[in-house]
């Protein structure tokens, strides 16, 4: 199975294909559409990621030393972004998720591209995922 670094390398390669941000957004949107939706019951305030402009729900499950992530969002670009994060972090060892350096966000230019408010939302998603991973790894 691919590591976090390998997963990021694949995403960077995918995005290198696009010059225009409209095309990058299209790719993000397609990833959002492809991600399985959360059950309605999981779309509750407890699972809401704080600090996002749109509503993003994030759910994590401990699977031994690994962590599973599931998410949904009411806006599709936010959903696509969280889908990318899940692509990188899902089914990885909790300790590695907690320690991971997400350089792909800079490499594909997303970090610079987002407005400060949206960039804060992205950081909130990452923080929340790492927070779950840290909690799970210390419970091992």
């Amino acid at each position: 199975m691919s590591t976090i670094a390998e997963k990021q390398a694949v995403l960077i390669e995918e995005f290198e294909f696009f010059d225009e941000w409209m095309d990058k957004y299209n790719h993000i949107i397609e990833m959002g559409k492809a991600m399985p939706v959360l059950d309605a019951v999981d779309k509750n305030d407890d699972l809401l990621v704080q600090g996002c402009q749109s509503k993003v729900w994030l759910k994590a499950e401990k699977k031994g030393e690994y962590v599973r992530f599931f998410a949904d969002a009411d806006a599709i670009i936010a959903k696509g972004i969280v889908a990318m994060l899940i692509d990188v972090f899902d089914n990885q060892p909790s300790t590695e998720v907690a320690a991971a350096d997400l350089s792909f966000l800079e490499e594909i230019g997303l970090k610079d591209h987002l407005s400060p408010t949206r960039a804060n939302g992205l950081m909130s998603m990452i923080k929340q995922m790492k927070f779950y991973a840290l909690a799970f790894s210390s419970a091992n």
């Binding site: 941000w21 409209m22 957004y25 949107i29 402009q53 749109s54 009411d74 806006a75 599709i76 670009i77 936010a78």
Partner: peptide, 21 residues
């Protein structure tokens, strides 16, 4: 079938400034 935030982002990419929220 669309969210206003997504519309705002994609309109901006095409040079169009609207408010969302």
């Amino acid at each position: 079938g669309t969210h206003p935030y997504d519309l705002g982002v994609l309109l901006d990419q095409q040079g169009v400034a609207v408010r969302t929220g």
